[in-house]
Simulated scan of single mutants.
Amino acid sequence: MSECNHDCGSCSANCESRKTDKSEFLEALNPASSVKKVIGIVSGKGGVGKSLVTSMLAVSMNRKGKKAAILDADITGPSIPKAFGIHNESGIGVSPDGNLMLPAKSLEGVDIMSANLLLDNDTDPVIWRGPVIAGAVKQFWSETLWQDIDFMFVDMPPGTGDVPLTVFQSLPVDGIIIVTSPQELVSMIVTKAVNMAKKMEIPIIGIVENMSYLECPDCGKRINVFGESHIDEVAADAGIKVLARLPIDPKIAQMVDAGQVEYLELPWLDEAAAAVEGL
Rank of each mutant, 00 (worst) to 15 (best):
V163H: 03
I39M: 12
I70L: 09
L57P: 13
C11V: 13
S10Q: 13
I75G: 03
P131D: 09
V38N: 12
A134G: 13
R222Y: 09
P125T: 08
A68Y: 07
L100D: 09
V110D: 06
S2A: 15
K50P: 02
S51W: 06
A68C: 07
A274M: 13
C219Y: 05
G239F: 02
M56A: 06
E24R: 04
L57S: 06
V234Y: 04
S212C: 05
K45F: 05
M61I: 07
K45L: 07
W141Y: 15
V256F: 06
D237P: 02
L264C: 01
G93F: 03
G46M: 02
K221V: 15
L145S: 08
V276R: 05
M255C: 01
K251A: 14
I223S: 14
K192E: 13
P158W: 09
D174L: 03
D150M: 07
I240S: 00
D237R: 14
M61H: 14
G93M: 04
D174P: 11
L118Q: 05
K82N: 02
K199T: 03
I86E: 11
V261C: 08
P158T: 07
S2N: 12
K22F: 14
A136Y: 06
A136G: 12
M188C: 12
V154E: 05
C219W: 10
K251G: 11
K22E: 10
K251W: 06
A69E: 04
P125M: 09
N224I: 04
